[in-house]
Design a binder for these strands. Structure first.
Length: 1102
RNA sequence: GGGCCUAUAGCUCAGACGGUUAGAGCACCACACUGAUAAUGUGGGGGUCAGAGGUUCAAGUCCUCUUAGGCCCA
C-alpha cells in the first residue's frame, strides 16, 4: 500500500466553487463547462446586455471631453431596409462594431447611431409592385400622398428583422436613437446643403443625355448605371446601314452617306452625320448611284458593293465637312442648322460600321456634345415612357424598341421606290443598304432589368468638375485600406469625375427646393434652405394630412405664391412661383448623412463642427463611386474638408463555390443556421481574420467558420476551464487587477507575463492602424502559446496548487479577455465575468501593456527552449524512442548557456530526460562532439565589394573550398573575406554510438543520450502503466479527484516495473490501494506497455 | 480600348531594402503524446513562384511583353 500524496486530502472534499464568479448559465452547479455550446452562451450574454443596458453604460461612462476632443467619430453608412441583411452587411457590421468597441476601451466616447436610407427608386418600385401599378401616370392617379405612404411603409418593412440580425451578431449600435433620411430634420439639412451649393454657384439646371429607364420613367446617374455585374447583358438588336442623299451641289451630289446604327429608332430624330477628319473616305458605284464610306470599311461591305467596286471619289473626312443631305425622315425637315456633315474625331472609328455616324442630338452623349457645338437644337419625339410622340406620328405610342421593325420596313419600302403609307415618312432617296442582327453587350436597368435608352432629360447638376481638383487634393489626406484605392480606383474616379445629375422626376425623395415662375416673361427662381425660409415666403410650412411639417411630395408641391417680380395683379394673370417637381437623387441623401443625422446647422452646430470629418468609415469597395464619393463631393463643396480620415474598403463576399452569392444557387451557408450552430463570434472571427479586409475577396464556407471555433474559441475557453477547474479544487481566489498578481518568480509565469506584454503592445499597434486581420493573426499565435505551452507545461504546478500560478494565469486571462473582447465580444464576456465577477469586459479599460513586466531576453530564451524541445522530439522520433521512455540526459550546446539554465527542469520534463546539461559552444567539451565549422557568405555585404567574384566565394563556401588562417583571415574560393562578409557556424558532427545529435535552428546543437538501460526501460514501462491506468479511469467515468483501488498483473517485466515504481504509479493515479499480482485478476483490462509487454489492470473507486 | 489590382504547395494566403535551401494555416499520410483541450507534437509527401524576354555578380522580388482572373472606366 502506498501512502497517498500529502496534497491529496485537501482536494478530497468537493468544495464550494470559486469560479465562475458570475455566469449567465442558470443550470445547476454553474460549473464552467468543458465543452461549451457557444451559441447558447451567446444568447444568454445578449439577454444579459439587454437587461443590464451595458451598451449605453459603455458609451456614457466615457467623457466627451472639452469640445468633444475625447470622442471618436464613426459614421454609419445607412442601409436600405426593404430587404434582409446578407453577409456583406454582416461583414461591415462587425467592423463597425470592433473599431468603436476598441476605441471605447481606449477611453474614447464613441456614439453609434444606426441610420436608415429610406428614399429612392427601390422603395418606389416596391410600392408600385404592391399596388399593381406600372407608370408614373398611375401614381399621380392614385395620389402622390397615398403612394408615398406606401413607400414609407415599404422602407420600414424589415427594420425589425435588421435589428434582430444586428443584435444577434453582437453589434452595439443605437437603434432607438436612429436617424432616417425621410425625417423632416434630415430633409431640412439636405435642403440646406442644396442651397449651400446653389449659393456657391455649384448647382445648375441643364439638359443632359443620361441613361434612362423608360419602364421606371427615370434617368439614372452614371454611378447608378453600373450598380452590379448584371447591368450589361448580351442583347440582339437590328443593325441597319442606311444611305442619306447628299444635296450639296458638286461632284458628290446624290451620293449616299452610309451610316450604320444599332438603334434604328433614333433615325427619325437624325440631325447630323459625324465623320473623323483624318479618316480616308471613298465614294463607290452601287446600283447606278454611288455611296460614301470609310475606305477601311469597304471590305466588310463587299457583299453589297462587290469585291472591287469602282471608286469615284477619294478624300479625307475634313473634305466632307459642311456637306448637306436630305434628312432620312421628314418630321424635322426644316430644323435649323441640321442635316450637315460634322466632325467628331474622337467618337468616330473604323473598327465597325461605315466610318460615318448618325447623330440624333438628344439620344447619345457624343451626339449631344456635337450638336450643341454645331448650334443644332436637339429634338425629343420620345416621351418619358419610352414611346414615340408628336411629331413622329407613324410610330406614336410605340415603344422605341418595338418601332425598330416598322422603321426598317418603311426604309425598305422607300429603298424600293415606294411612297405613301408603305414608306411612312422616309424621304425619297434614302436607302437601306443592309439590315443585320447584332449581338452586343447592352446596359439594362439595375432595378427592373429592362434595356435602357440614352435620352436627353432636363436635370439639375452639381458642378463637380468645378472643384474636382480640390477633391483630389483632399483625397490625399484620407488613409485608405487597402492603400492603392486612394490613387487607384477612387483617385481615378475623381480624375474623371463629371457633373452629378442630382434630380429625378420621381415622387419619394427629398424635394428639389427650387421654385420657378410659371411665366417665362417674368422669370424668377427661389432656392430654399430651411423650413423658416419657406414659412417666411409662403406664410406657412408644408404640412401633411396629419398636420405635421413634411417636406415630401405632395405637401411641398402645394406651396405656391404670386411671383413678386411680376407687377401684374392676379386678375391680370400674374404668374405663380411653383416648385420644380423633381426630387433629389437618393445618393444626395447618403452624401448628406454626416450633417443630416444631427440636423446641422439647425441643431448641434457645435457638435458637428467638432465631429467632422469622421475618424473612420467602412464599406465595400464599390462605394468608391457611391457613398464614399457622394460624401466626398458634399464635404469638399460645403466644408472644404474630407468627410472621413480613415476608410476601409473591403472586398466582396463570395459563395462557397467562389461565385457571387446567389439565393437560387444556395451557394452560401444560411446566416441564421450559422448563428445557431457556430455562433456570432465564430462568424465574426472568420470574416475579420480573412483577406477581405485587405481588399481581397472572400469565399464563405462552413468549414472556415468552424475553423475559427477550433483554432481560437475552444483554446481560449479551455484555458479558462482549466483555470477554473484547479482554482475551484484548491478553493483559490486570484487577486486579479492587483500588482501582486504579476509578481511571480517562476520562469514560466514570468515568461507568460512578458509574452503577454508583447502581445498587447502589438495588438494595440495593429488596432490603431485598423489592421483587424493582423490583430486576429497576432491573437491566434498568442493563444497558441498560452494554451499549448504555458498551460501544458504548468499543469503540475496547478495540480500542486501553486498560488503564483493561479495569480499569473488569472492576470493573463483578464488581460487577454480585455484585449480580445472587440474581436470575440460574447465569449470573452462570459469568461471575463466568470473570472472577475465584474459587470462587463466591455466596460473595462484597454489593457495597459506597461503594467506587465517587460523581459524581451526571457521571451527570447523561452522561444529557444521551445526549439530545443521541438528538436529533441524530432531526435526521439528519428531514433524510435517513444516519449514515455525516460532517457538519461540531454546536452544543449548554445552560445549563451546561462540564459537557458533556469529552464532546465522544463526541458527535462517536456522531453522526458533525467538531466539536462548546458554547454557553451566554444567550450572544450563542446568541441569534443566532433563539431565542424561551416562558412556562409553574406552576399548582401560581400556582393557590392566583390561584384561578380562573390559567386566564386559562395561556390567555395559550399564546396568546402575555404579556410581560416592563423591570424583569423577567412578565405573562400580563393578570395579573402573581411569581417561582416561571412558567418561561421558550428555544426555538430556524426554522433558517437549511444547518442544522437541535431542542429538547433537558431545556432548550437543538441546531443541526446540514447542508451536505454534496464532501469530506464523499467521506468518507461511504469510510465506506460500510469498512462494506461489514467485512460482506464477516464473510461470508467471517474472524476479527476476520485481515489482508486488498483490491481496490476502481467509479464515479469510488468510486475518488476510495477513494484519498483509503486510510489510513482500509485501517486499519479490516486491509488489508495495498490496490488501487484502474478495472477491476472478476472475482469481486468489487458493493455500493451513497454516493448510488447502485456499488463492487466483492474481498478475500483475507493 | 484605357486604368488599378491579382497570379507563390491540393485550398487560403505571407514573403521590408534584390542576397543564393521560398514559408504559414488548413487538408492528407505515418508516428508520438494526452486526466484542461473538440486538442497537441514530430516527421513526410506536395512548388517550372502564370509564361517569355531583359537588367544584375545575384530576381518570387526590379523592367518590358504575353496570358488568365477581379474591379473600375470608355
Amino acid at each position: 500500500m502506498a501512502e497517498p500524496q500529502t496534497t491529496i486530502p485537501t482536494r478530497r472534499r468537493r468544495p464550494a466553487m470559486t469560479y465562475p464568479k458570475v455566469t449567465t448559465d442558470s443550470a445547476d452547479g454553474h460549473a464552467v463547462p468543458s465543452s461549451p455550446r457557444f451559441p447558447e452562451i451567446e444568447e444568454r450574454i445578449l439577454a444579459y446586455w439587454a437587461e443590464d443596458d451595458t451598451f449605453r453604460a459603455s458609451v456614457e461612462q466615457r467623457d466627451a471631453g472639452a469640445n468633444g476632443e475625447n470622442e471618436f467619430v464613426f459614421y454609419d453608412g445607412p442601409p436600405f431596409a426593404n430587404g434582409l441583411p446578407h453577409y456583406g452587411h454582416l461583414l461591415t457590421g462587425y467592423v463597425k462594431d470592433i473599431v468603436p468597441r476598441y476605441q471605447t476601451m481606449r477611453g474614447k466616447r464613441v456614439e453609434r447611431r444606426f441610420g436608415w436610407d429610406t428614399h429612392g427608386l427601390p422603395a418606389e418600385l416596391e410600392a408600385m409592385r404592391l399596388n399593381g401599378i406600372k407608370t408614373t401616370d398611375e401614381i399621380v392617379e392614385m395620389g402622390i400622398d397615398k403612394f408615398n405612404d406606401a413607400c414609407r411603409a415599404s422602407v420600414l418593412k424589415y427594420t425589425g428583422e435588421w435589428r434582430d440580425y444586428v443584435t444577434r451578431q453582437a453589434r452595439w449600435v443605437d437603434f432607438d436613437n436612429d436617424y432616417r433620411t425621410m425625417n423632416p430634420e434630415f430633409m431640412e439639412s439636405v435642403l440646406w446643403a442644396f442651397k449651400g451649393l446653389h449659393d456657391k454657384g455649384l448647382v445648375y439646371e441643364g439638359f443632359r443625355v443620361l441613361p434612362y429607364c423608360w419602364n421606371d420613367e427615370t434617368p439614372l446617374s452614371n454611378h447608378e448605371l453600373r450598380m452590379d455585374d448584371d447591368v450589361y447583358k448580351m442583347r440582339q438588336d437590328p443593325a441597319v446601314t442606311v444611305g442619306f442623299k447628299i444635296t450639296t451641289p458638286g461632284e458628290l451630289q446624290g451620293t449616299r452617306l452610309l451610316i450604320w446604327t444599332t438603334t434604328p429608332w433614333t433615325l427619325p430624330s437624325n440631325l447630323a452625320v459625324m465623320v473623323g477628319s483624318d479618316i480616308d473616305y471613298v465614294a463607290v458605284d452601287h446600283d447606278g448611284t454611288s455611296v460614301l464610306l470609310a475606305q477601311a470599311r469597304l471590305a466588310s461591305y463587299s457583299r453589297e458593293l462587290g469585291d472591287e467596286p469602282t471608286i469615284t471619289w477619294r478624300g479625307k473626312g475634313e473634305d466632307l465637312l459642311g456637306l448637306t443631305y436630305a434628312p432620312p425622315f421628314s418630321y424635322f425637315a426644316d430644323h435649323e442648322n441640321a442635316f450637315r456633315v460634322v466632325a467628331a474625331d474622337e467618337a468616330v472609328t473604323t473598327t465597325d460600321g461605315t466610318g460615318l455616324v448618325h447623330s440624333a442630338g438628344a439620344f447619345g452623349e457624343v451626339d449631344k456634345e456635337v450638336t450643341d457645338r454645331e448650334g443644332i437644337e436637339p429634338v425629343m419625339p420620345v416621351g418619358k415612357d419610352g414611346r414615340f410622340t408628336h411629331p413622329v406620328e407613324d410610330y406614336a405610342g410605340m415603344l422605341v424598341f418595338d418601332a425598330n421593325l416598322h422603321i426598317i420596313d418603311h426604309l425598305k419600302a422607300a429603298t424600293r421606290g415606294e411612297q405613301g403609307e408603305a414608306a411612312g415618312a422616309v424621304t425619297p432617296g434614302t436607302v437601306l443598304l443592309r439590315r443585320e442582327t447584332y449581338d452586343h453587350s447592352y446596359p439594362h436597368c439595375w432595378r427592373c432589368r429592362e434595356p435602357l435608352i440614352y435620352k436627353g432629360v432636363s436635370s439639375w447638376f452639381v458642378e463637380v468638375t468645378a472643384f474636382k481638383q480640390r477633391m483630389m487634393e483632399l483625397n490625399q489626406d484620407i488613409r485608405w485600406t487597402p492603400e492603392h484605392i486612394k490613387d487607384g480606383q477612387f483617385g481615378k474616379w475623381l480624375e474623371n469625375a463629371r457633373d452629378w445629375s442630382i434630380t429625378r422626376n420621381r415622387f419619394w425623395g427629398s424635394p428639389v427646393p427650387v421654385w420657378k415662375s410659371d411665366d417665362p416673361a417674368y422669370p424668377r427662381l427661389d432656392v430654399y434652405g430651411s423650413f423658416a425660409e419657406i414659412e417666411r415666403d409662403f406664410g406657412r410650412l408644408p404640412r401633411n394630412a396629419a398636420g405635421e411639417p413634411d417636406l415630401h411630395r405632395p405637401w411641398v408641391d402645394d406651396l405656391t405664391r404670386p411671383n413678386p417680380d411680376d407687377p401684374r395683379t392676379p386678375e391680370q394673370g400674374q404668374s405663380t412661383m411653383r416648385r420644380v417637381t423633381d426630387v433629389l437623387d437618393v445618393w444626395f441623401d447618403s452624401g448628406s448623412m454626416s450633417f443630416g443625422q444631427v440636423h446641422y446647422p439647425f441643431e448641434n452646430a457645435e457638435w458637428f463642427e467638432q465631429h467632422f470629418p469622421a475618424d473612420f468609415i467602412v464599406e465595400y469597395i464599390g462605394q468608391t463611386r457611391g457613398w464614399f464619393y457622394t460624401l466626398h463631393i458634399l464635404a469638399t463643396a460645403l466644408f472644404d474638408k474630407p468627410a472621413f480620415s480613415s476608410c476601409i474598403s473591403h472586398g466582396i463576399v463570395l459563395g462557397s463555390d467562389g461565385n457571387k452569392m446567389s439565393k437560387s444557387l444556395r451557394n452560401y451557408p444560411d446566416v441564421s443556421e450559422v448563428f445557431d450552430r457556430d455562433g456570432a463570434d465564430a462568424m465574426r472571427w472568420f470574416l475579420m481574420a480573412s483577406p477581405i479586409l485587405r481588399g481581397g475577396n472572400l469565399v464563405v464556407t462552413e468549414q472556415g467558420i468552424r475553423d475559427a471555433v477550433r483554432q481560437v474559441m475552444i483554446p481560449l475557453w479551455n484555458t479558462w476551464y482549466f483555470f477554473a477547474l484547479y482554482a475551484n479544487a484548491e478553493q483559490y481566489e486570484a487577486s486579479v487587477g492587483r500588482a501582486e498578481s504579476l509578481g511571480s518568480d517562476d520562469p514560466l509565469d514570468r515568461y507568460l507575463l512578458a509574452k503577454t506584454r508583447q502581445y498587447v503592445e502589438q495588438l494595440t499597434a495593429e488596432l490603431d492602424a485598423y489592421a483587424i486581420a493582423d490583430a486576429c493573426e497576432t491573437t491566434r499565435t498568442f493563444i497558441d502559446v498560452l494554451t499549448n505551452w504555458y498551460v501544458r507545461r504548468s499543469r503540475e504546478r496547478f495540480w500542486e496548487g501553486k498560488p503564483e500560478a493561479f495569480e499569473t494565469l488569472a492576470a493573463v486571462l483578464d488581460v487577454v479577455c480585455r484585449a480580445v473582447s472587440p474581436l470575440l465580444p460574447l465569449v470573452t464576456e462570459e469568461i471575463w465575468r466568470g473570472l472577475t465577477g465584474g459587470r462587463s469586459v466591455h466596460l473595462a479599460d484597454w489593457p495597459d501593456a506597461t503594467t506587465l513586466p517587460a523581459d524581451d531576453s526571457l521571451v527570447a530564451a523561452m522561444d529557444q527552449v521551445r526549439e530545443v524541445c521541438s528538436s529533441t522530439s524530432a531526435l526521439r522520433k528519428a531514433a524510435r524512442l517513444r516519449n514515455r521512455l525516460p532517457l538519461a540526459g540531454l546536452t544543449v550546446v548554445v552560445d549563451d548557456p546561462a540564459a537557458l539554465q533556469p529552464f532546465a527542469a522544463i526541458i527535462a520534463d517536456e522531453v522526458n530526460v533525467k538531466s539536462v546539461r548546458f554547454l557553451a559552444a566554444d567550450s572544450e567539451e563542446a568541441r569534443g562532439y566532433g563539431v565542424e565549422q561551416k562558412l556562409t557568405v553574406n552576399a548582401r555585404a560581400a556582393g557590392p565589394r566583390l561584384g561578380k567574384d562573390v559567386q566564386l566565394a559562395i561556390k567555395g563556401s559550399k564546396s568546402g573550398d575555404w579556410s581560416v588562417a592563423e591570424d583569423g583571415t577567412v578565405t573562400a574560393g580563393g578570395l579573402a573575406l573581411v569581417e561582416g562578409e561571412y558567418g561561421l557556424e558550428t555544426h555538430v558532427g556524426e554522433a558517437a554510438d549511444g547518442a544522437a545529435t541535431a542542429m538547433l535552428p537558431g545556432g548550437g546543437f543538441l546531443v541526446l543520450d540514447t542508451v536505454v538501460t534496464a532501469e530506464l526501460a523499467e521506468e518507461g514501462v511504469a510510465r506506460d502503466l500510469v498512462r494506461a491506468v489514467q485512460q482506464l479511469r477516464r473510461d470508467s467515468g471517474l472524476d479527476v479527484t476520485d481515489r482508486i483501488e488498483l490491481t496490476i498483473s502481467g509479464s515479469p517485466a510488468v510486475l518488476a516495473a510495477a513494484r519498483a515504481h509503486e510510489a510513482l504509479i500509485a501517486g499519479e493515479t490516486l491509488a489508495t490501494s495498490y496490488d501487484v499480482t502474478e495472477a491476472g485478476s478476472p475482469g481486468g483490462t489487458p493493455v500493451q506497455v513497454g516493448d510488447g509487454e502485456t499488463a492487466t489492470l483492474a481498478l475500483e473507486r475507493a
